[in-house]
Structure formats: structure tokens, C-alpha cells
């Protein structure tokens, strides 16, 4: 009974045909080849950034004069700054639009805001929004590529790419890598993007947390995902330990006691004794020291948390270059 058009609906792994080329909306609709290619591009960007001042200058020709709008409906420091530097490293011109300082507050619809930004000459839109699916909605109506910088609880694809990039700087391959993600999985777009990416790339993903923050449904997210309630057991085999922020503002309705959470899930020096000596500790930020992780571990020898932030720039350069169709 369903028409050919309707048959497309509900099919996973396939973006709608009307999505502008170069968009990055969700890792879920990306192939392993596309992910690998972006990671390679990121490495190329980084080596050119670090090679010499001349090669660094040369990079600014890549997107010289191209216009990138950064549309932020939610506060963000690291993602916005990282995208801005990434764009500027490639020579692009950026405009930051904050929800609070625009017509958005007056009740303009998301799509109308998109049309306006497109009409003023933006060639790509990087957007952060509190509603899941907001980037998809935008991309559906616009002609310019849309880059999702985090939509609600759904995805944060560039974070997953920079996390994978960081893992690859310390580990040989993502294939077979044992990655443990601990904390508030339910509310986390970072967890969803990471689970999608790592599953596609052949890593073993273990999600860890109490039932309130990690419902059984999480196992359906991508193939091969395991759930583990006991962090100490999970730590023993992990090559990568990724701690997530507990989104305190979202806990009010849940049956979750902070002291219990800290006792059962905080990553401490003590717990790290269970971990493999070459395991790396990651955190996508913002990090609450003393909550999900202690300062000793966050600043400890196995932590790559600061490096993650730095890696955001070359990864986002690769994403922007792809979006705007730059050669090489």
C-alpha cells in the first residue's frame, strides 16, 4: 500500500535525498569510509598546521573568504571557539549568531532563521540547538550545508570524530578497541554519536551507569553495544575510558542520589588501579571535578582530556572543508 516515497521512511542509515551536500547531521547516517576519510583529512590538517608558519598560512587559502555562520541556541564555549578557530585557520569568515541576541527570541521559527541566514550569504551553517533533530529540520529546508554542533540528546557528530581522532593518536586502530563510556548516557548526545561511530568502526563499546541514566534500551543503539552496571569490572578490560558529565540540572525528576552516584561511578585514583596501565582517560567536557571524576585522574598521566580539546580544531577544519567542497 505504501508508495515508493513512503517506503523510504523509517529506513535507517540513509539521509533524506533533500539534505544539502556536505552536511554533517548525524554519525548514524555516515559510512565507515566517510568516517575514515574525515579522520585522515583531520590528520592532514593537523600536520599542515604544525609543519611551518608558511604551511599554516597556506591553509588560509583553502576556504578564503567563504562565509560560515555559527548559530548557537545553547551556550557553548569549547565547541563554538573550536569551530571558529577551525574556520579561520582555513581563511573563512565567521559570524556567530546567539539565540539570545537575535530575532529567535521574538519567536521566529527555526526554518525562517535558517532562510534569513542563508539569504544574507552564509555558505554553511554550524548549529547547536536544544531540540533533537533541529539540524535535520534545518537541512531539510536549506540549500547550504548544515553542520550539527549538537542537537538536544540526539548527536554531536564532530565530538565523536575528535574523540575517535584522539583515540587513534594513542591506539593503533579503532577495530577491536575496547571503549568504556561511563555516566549519563540517556541525556548525552556525545554518547549517542560515539556509540554510533565506534560501533561502525568495529570497536567494542561498553556503556556503564545506573539504570536511571542508562536504560536497557541503550543496547539497541547500535550493533554490539554492551551494558555494564559495575564500573570496577568494566574498567579491567578497557583501552579507553570516557567519562561523561552528570547533567545535574536533569536529575531532579530521577531517583538518583548524588552521593550514591559518586560512590558507585566516580573515576578515582583508587579505581584506576583496576584499569590497564595503557588505558587512556577521556572526557568531552564540561567536566565537573569531584563529581564524575577526581582532579587527580583528570590531570593524571593517563588523561588525554586537554588533548581532546586541541584535536577539535583540525577535525572541525576537515568537516568545514568537506562542507564547503574545498579541494584537498
Amino acid at each position: 500500500m505504501r508508495s515508493s516515497k513512503s517506503k523510504q521512511r523509517g529506513r535507517k542509515q540513509k539521509p533524506a535525498p533533500s539534505i544539502p551536500t556536505g552536511s554533517l547531521l548525524a554519525i548514524e547516517s555516515f559510512s565507515p569510509e566517510e568516517i575514515s576519510s574525515l579522520l585522515k583529512q583531520s590528520a592532514a590538517m593537523q600536520s599542515q598546521l604544525e609543519k611551518s608558519p608558511a604551511s599554516r598560512r597556506q591553509l588560509t587559502n583553502t576556504l578564503a573568504g567563504r562565509r560560515v555562520a555559527l548559530l548557537f541556541y545553547e551556550a557553548s564555549t569549547r565547541t563554538r571557539v573550536s569551530f571558529e578557530f577551525a574556520a579561520k585557520n582555513l581563511g573563512a569568515v565567521t559570524t556567530v549568531v546567539h539565540a539570545a541576541a537575535s530575532s529567535i527570541e521574538k519567536g521566529e521559527s527555526l526554518v525562517d532563521t535558517g532562510y534569513t541566514i542563508e539569504a544574507t550569504g552564509a555558505e554553511a551553517i554550524v548549529m547547536r540547538h536544544p531540540s533533537s533533530g533541529a539540524a535535520q529540520l534545518m537541512a531539510h529546508y536549506l540549500k547550504v550545508p548544515v553542520i550539527n554542533a549538537g542537537d538536544g540528546m540526539h548527536e554531536h557528530p564532530t565530538q565523536a570524530l575528535l574523540d575517535a581522532y584522539t583515540m587513534l593518536r594513542h591506539k593503533k586502530s579503532l577495530r577491536g578497541l575496547r571503549v568504556l563510556i561511563v555516566g549519563d548516557i540517556f541525556h548525552s548526545r556525545v554518547a549517542r554519536s560515539n556509540a554510533q561511530l565506534l560501533s561502525k568502526m568495529g570497536a567494542h563499546v561498553t556503556l556503564c551507569g545506573p539504570n536511571e541514566l542508562l536504560p536497557e534500551l541503550a543496547a539497541t543503539l547500535a550493533p554490539g553495544i554492551e551494558l555494564q552496571r559495575d564500573i570496577d569490572a568494566a574498567l579491567k578490560t578497557a583501552d579507553v575510558i570516557m567519562m561523561l558529565r552528570v547533567q545535574k540540572e536533569r536529575l531532579s525528576g530521577l531517583n538518583l542520589n548524588i552521593e550514591d552516584y559518586i560512590r558507585d561511578y566516580q573515576l578515582t585514583q583508587d579505581r584506576m588501579r583496576n584499569a590497564k596501565p595503557d588505558a587512556i582517560v577521556m572526557h568531552p567536557g564540561p567536566m565537573i571535578r569531584g563529581m564524575e571524576i577526581t582532579a587527580e585522574v583528570a590531570d593524571g598521566p593517563q588523561s588525554v582530556i586537554v588533548e581532546q580539546v586541541a584535536n577539535g580544531v583540525p577535525v572541525r577544519m576537515a568537516v568545514l572543508a568537506r562542507a564547503l567542497g574545498a579541494r584537498k
Binding site: 548514524e28 533533537s132 533533530g133 538536544g152 540528546m153 540526539h154 549517542r192 534500551l217 543503539l221
Partner: peptide, 8 residues
């Protein structure tokens, strides 16, 4: 599973 996947 769909609501979990979509973050809704």
C-alpha cells in the same frame, strides 16, 4: 529503540 536513537 527509535526514541532512544533519536534522543527523544
Amino acid at each position: 529503540p527509535t526514541s532512544f536513537r533519536l534522543g527523544l
